[in-house]
Design a protein around this nucleic acid. Sequence first.
DNA 1: ACCGCCATGTAAAGTGTTACATGATTGG
DNA 2: CCAATCATGTAACACTTTACATGGCGGT
Lengths: 185, 185
Amino acid sequence: MKDNSTLALALLGLLHADPKSGYDLRKVFASTPMGSFSDSPGAIYPALARLEKQGMVSSEVEGTGGLRRRRLYRPTPKGTEAFRAWLEQPVTADEVIHRMDHLMLRFAFMDPVLRPERIARFLRALQGAIAAYLPTLHDYLDAHAREMTRSGRLALECGIREYALQLEWARSAAELYEQRRRKEA
Amino acid sequence: MKDNSTLALALLGLLHADPKSGYDLRKVFASTPMGSFSDSPGAIYPALARLEKQGMVSSEVEGTGGLRRRRLYRPTPKGTEAFRAWLEQPVTADEVIHRMDHLMLRFAFMDPVLRPERIARFLRALQGAIAAYLPTLHDYLDAHAREMTRSGRLALECGIREYALQLEWARSAAELYEQRRRKEA
DNA sequence: ACCGCCATGTAAAGTGTTACATGATTGG
DNA sequence: CCAATCATGTAACACTTTACATGGCGGT
C-alpha cells in the first residue's frame, strides 16, 4: 500500500530478510547505518500493530523454550506482494527532489525481491530523473547567485554536487546489474 | 528554542531575509531548491501562529494600499535571539548521523547572522564530526559486506561517498571563510 | 538484594497531511 | 462574466516523540 509510512515500509523490508521481533528492529535502527529511523518503541510497536491489522505481517510469540515473550513478525504473502509493488513503483521527479532517501531505501531492499533487469531499469530511471533535475538546479544557481548569501550559495552548491555524485553512482550501479544480467543469461 | 520544528526554524530563517506573508513562504518552498519542506497551508499557517504565540515573530496586515489582506510576518528581537542560538548550537555526532539536512539548513542561514569566524568554526566542527563518523561506516561495511545484499551494499557505498563529498565540501568552505576573515582583518 | 539489560507496550501532546472552505482580485 | 490566481484559514486524521509502566532474566 502506498499509504504506509516510510517507517512501516522499512520494517516490512527488514522482515523480508528474516523474522524479527520489535526489539530486534529497534536494535537495527539504533546500531546500523540503515538509521535515520527512530528506534523508539512508541514508533515501532504501533507500526507493527498497524501492519498486522492490515494483514501485511503475521506474528507469533516465540517458541516455549525461552520462556521470554518475544513476538516474532514475518511478512505474509499479501505483505510481500505490497512490498514488491512499492519497490516497483516508477521513479518520479517529485521523489528525486523531495524524497531521495526514500528512493535509496527502496533500492537497498530490491536485491532479494526483484530480478536484476528490473533493478537495472530502476537505476536507469533514477539516473534519467537526476539528469533531468540537475540542469534546473544549475539554472537556479546561475539566476539567483547574486541575491543569495554566500552560505546559501555554498549550501546549494553542496546539494548540486550530491546530486551529481548520485547520478554517477546510479550509472555505475546500473552497469553492474546489466553486466550481471548478461552473465546470468 | 530547541523545541521548535525544523519547519518553524526554516520559516524564522526566511523571515530574517525580509518580511513575508504565509503565501510568500509557501511559494519559496514550492519553487526553490530550498524545498523538502511542505508548502501546504495546513503546515505553514499553524506554524506561523505558533511562532507568533511564542513571541518569535510579529505580524501586521499589510498597508491599506492594496486592500488585500496580506499578513506580513517579521522576526522579533526575541525571535532573532532564538534563531542565533539555534545557529550557534554545537555540531553533534547525532546530527551528522541522523540530521545532516538540518545541519546544512543551519549553515545556509548563517551568513547574514553570524560572523565569518563563527561560521568557519561551525564548518571545522562539521568537518571533524564527519571525519570521525566516516571510519565507522567503512568498518561497518568491511564487517558486514558478506551478509549484505548487493543492493544494500551499493546503497551504503553511495551513502559513504556522500559523506566523503560533504567532508571535502566542508573543508573547502571553511577555507573560504577563513580567507575572508583574514582579508577583513 | 540490586542493577542493568531484554522485551513489550501505552498515553498525552505536538506536528504534518489531506481536503475542504472562503473571499478578493486580475486577465481574457 | 468566468476562470485562475492570490491569500488565509480550519477540521479530521495519522503519525512520531517523549515519557512512563511493566516484568522476567542474568550477573555480582
